[in-house]
Simulated assay, not measured.
Amino acid sequence: MDQFVVLTVYCGLIVAASMLGGALPSVMRLTHTRMQLMMSGVGGLMLGVGVLHLLPHGVAESGSIDVAVGGMFVGILSMFFLMRVFHSHQHAPVEKEYPEVAAAEHPQDHDPHAGHAHCDHDHGDEGPKSVWRWLGIFLGLSLHTLIDGIALAAAVAAAAHAESGLAKLALGVFLGIVLHKPLDALSITFVMRAGGWSATSMNLINFGYSLMCPIGVVLFYFAIGSLDDAWRHNVVGGALGFAAGVFICIALADILPEIQFHSHDKWKLSSVLLLGALLAVAIGWLEPPHAHHHAPAPATAPLPLPAMSPDREL
């Protein structure tokens, strides 16, 4: 299947997932447990995709472990500072939306004498201090989604030379992105709704946010279009390593710590986390054995035989 077709389908599904995420509160009741289960599964999937798919593909594409790991290092730092500056991954606290459901599910979390010793960190759930508070979250998540588009384009470009049609799809990277987008879009629309914005305004902003991934895809192909083969392989390999760092940072610095602070349902959340990680492993099993092949090492010339003197007997 042509790269253009694959990326067009993926971008369309990611846009749809983002729009659905922004509208989730009006479609279903996002209870505390449901949000935590979604975050746990997505966190396990993103961690598995980053470690088991993006990083190995980056090494294979560039032919250099230094390029891929260097890209991963930059990706981790970039995503960390992006979250630090914009506070971008503030997933909607459902207790504000449905306090009676949250209290019924986990009464110990709403006991004023419970101490909340397990939850001393700031969830960012004090409510918007300004009707424009959503703007910082929007900017941070838009940059993040732009990076996701670059990662998706790099993964599909790297998989283009795979032998199997299924391996050409870069399915793991796509799933890690498309399953995470509804949570991000929900963060934007939740804060906008708390600030009193209309449904039309929220839908327009969410649509603009959802377009960041296709824009990232286009930017990536513009960036590598004029490069020769050697540079293109290095750029794609480095971009895959960078995307691995982004996925790992989101999973370890944002999603999984958020779940860790909630002591209730720990076995249920841990099980869903494991299922997400196993899904990333299963996607790897669907690929043929040579999907992660490395570029063959150049053949070395045979060592010259020592010269023999004419009068030497064999």
Results as ranks from 00 to 15, higher is better:
residue 56 P to G: 07
residue 57 H to Y: 02
residue 57 H to V: 06
residue 57 H to Q: 13
residue 57 H to G: 12
residue 58 G to V: 11
residue 60 A to V: 04
residue 61 E to P: 00
residue 61 E to S: 13
residue 62 S to H: 08
residue 63 G to R: 13
residue 65 I to Y: 08
residue 65 I to C: 01
residue 65 I to K: 07
residue 65 I to S: 12
residue 65 I to E: 02
residue 66 D to T: 15
residue 66 D to W: 15
residue 66 D to C: 06
residue 67 V to P: 01
residue 68 A to E: 12
residue 68 A to S: 14
residue 69 V to T: 08
residue 70 G to T: 10
residue 70 G to I: 09
residue 70 G to A: 11
residue 70 G to M: 06
residue 71 G to E: 00
residue 72 M to W: 06
residue 73 F to W: 12
residue 73 F to D: 02
residue 73 F to P: 01
residue 73 F to I: 14
residue 74 V to Y: 11
residue 74 V to T: 01
residue 75 G to L: 07
residue 75 G to N: 12
residue 75 G to E: 07
residue 76 I to G: 02
residue 76 I to N: 04
residue 77 L to K: 00
residue 77 L to S: 08
residue 77 L to Y: 04
residue 78 S to T: 15
residue 79 M to W: 12
residue 79 M to T: 09
residue 80 F to W: 12
residue 80 F to T: 08
residue 81 F to A: 09
residue 83 M to F: 05
residue 83 M to Y: 01
residue 84 R to I: 00
residue 84 R to E: 02
residue 84 R to W: 07
residue 85 V to G: 05
residue 85 V to Q: 11
residue 85 V to S: 10
residue 86 F to S: 03
residue 87 H to V: 04
residue 87 H to I: 01
residue 87 H to A: 03
residue 87 H to Y: 00
residue 88 S to Q: 03
residue 88 S to T: 03
residue 89 H to N: 01
residue 89 H to D: 03
residue 90 Q to C: 02
residue 90 Q to E: 11
residue 91 H to L: 14
residue 91 H to N: 04
residue 92 A to Q: 12
residue 93 P to V: 13
residue 93 P to D: 15
residue 94 V to N: 09
residue 94 V to T: 15
residue 94 V to F: 02
residue 95 E to D: 10
residue 95 E to H: 13
residue 95 E to S: 15
residue 96 K to P: 00
residue 96 K to E: 13
residue 97 E to W: 09
residue 98 Y to I: 12
residue 99 P to H: 04
residue 99 P to D: 05
residue 99 P to W: 02
residue 99 P to K: 07
residue 99 P to V: 00
residue 100 E to T: 10
residue 100 E to L: 11
residue 101 V to R: 09
residue 102 A to L: 09
residue 103 A to L: 08
residue 103 A to G: 06
residue 103 A to N: 13
residue 104 A to G: 12
residue 105 E to A: 03
residue 106 H to D: 10
residue 109 D to A: 06
residue 109 D to T: 00
residue 110 H to A: 11
residue 111 D to W: 00
residue 111 D to L: 04
residue 112 P to Q: 04
residue 112 P to A: 08
residue 112 P to D: 07
residue 113 H to F: 11
residue 114 A to F: 10
residue 116 H to N: 10
residue 116 H to Y: 07
residue 117 A to R: 11
residue 117 A to S: 05
residue 117 A to V: 04
residue 118 H to Y: 08
residue 118 H to Q: 05
residue 118 H to M: 08
residue 119 C to I: 03
residue 119 C to S: 12
residue 121 H to S: 06
residue 121 H to L: 10
residue 121 H to K: 10
residue 122 D to T: 08
residue 122 D to H: 13
residue 122 D to W: 14
residue 122 D to N: 14
residue 123 H to C: 11
residue 123 H to L: 06
residue 123 H to D: 06
residue 123 H to F: 05
residue 123 H to A: 04
residue 124 G to E: 01
residue 124 G to D: 02
residue 124 G to S: 05
residue 124 G to I: 08
residue 125 D to R: 12
residue 125 D to N: 11
residue 125 D to K: 06
residue 126 E to V: 03
residue 126 E to G: 15
residue 126 E to F: 02
residue 130 S to M: 04
residue 130 S to Y: 01
residue 131 V to Q: 10
